[in-house]
Amino acid sequence: MALPFEKPIDDLSDRIEDMRAYASEQNIDLSEEISLLEGRLERLQHDVFENLTRWQRVQVARAPGRPTALDYIQSVFETFTELHGDRTLGDDSAMVTGLALLGGRSVVVIGQQKGRDTKENIGRNFGMAHPSGYRKAMRMFNMADKFGLPVVTLIDTPGAYPGVAAEEQGQAWVIAESIQRMSQLKVPAVAVVIGEGGSGGALAVGVANRVLILENAIYSVISPESCAAILWRDASQAPKAAEALKLTAGDLLELGVVDGVIKEPVGGAHRDPQATMRCVGARLEEELGALSSLSETELLEQRYARFRNMGRLESVT
């Protein structure tokens, strides 16, 4: 399913396909024409994707076909072994956790999992965790500390689930605890926002030494829809809210909220999941390698300073 602004790209690539089919059917050589059109397609993709509005990036961040946490876990990590359950309430399928190898190193991996289609999405609660999910994540933080394993988190959630049971079980309490627990990790932690970084539900597993974001991912205090509903009393003003919230990778790098942006293939991660995942994997190995030279104290101090210094202030004159 194409995003609205991808239509010209899709039309052109359909034309190229048709031409190829025609050429082979008629056994004629159209390679010159085809390569001309391919050049045009590449330029068109560049033009469209270089100039995406913030709202269009929100759409890319949520695009069907974009690699999910489990896609990364299965392709970037080796021998992933899922560990289930929070030992209190249940097992939250919106938060996948386990042990794996990354570049030959044992790591604890925590991924916020959206479904790849509607059926899966319902099973995964659209990537919106309940308190149980955050409790499971905290269990993994404890395990990482105990065995000295680095932590990798993959962030992709519209937000923590806003439901009756979630509130009754202390959604706010577990998010706060998870933020606190993660900030106290004695091991290296790297977080990657792979799609949607939805507010506190994302931050709960985002208190890492290094926070990276994919080029077309977003990270925001509130969804553009909810923001628009509050400020303009109209959720359809979401594009305006997306602009105002400065929630794109480039914006967040400028604000110091993220430390680095991982480039996506032209056309977005959903156009070439394999290439995207390879890039993320390589970057994760690099970051973990760099952090592995830091002592426990240095890791704690670096993480503390990273978050303690967030914000923009002015002196009262």
Partner: peptide, 13 residues
């Protein structure tokens, strides 16, 4: 924006 979100972590640490 996200800087407000980060205050959750700042106050916590």
């Amino acid at each position: 924006g996200a800087l407000s979100l980060m205050q959750m972590a700042k106050t916590t640490v």
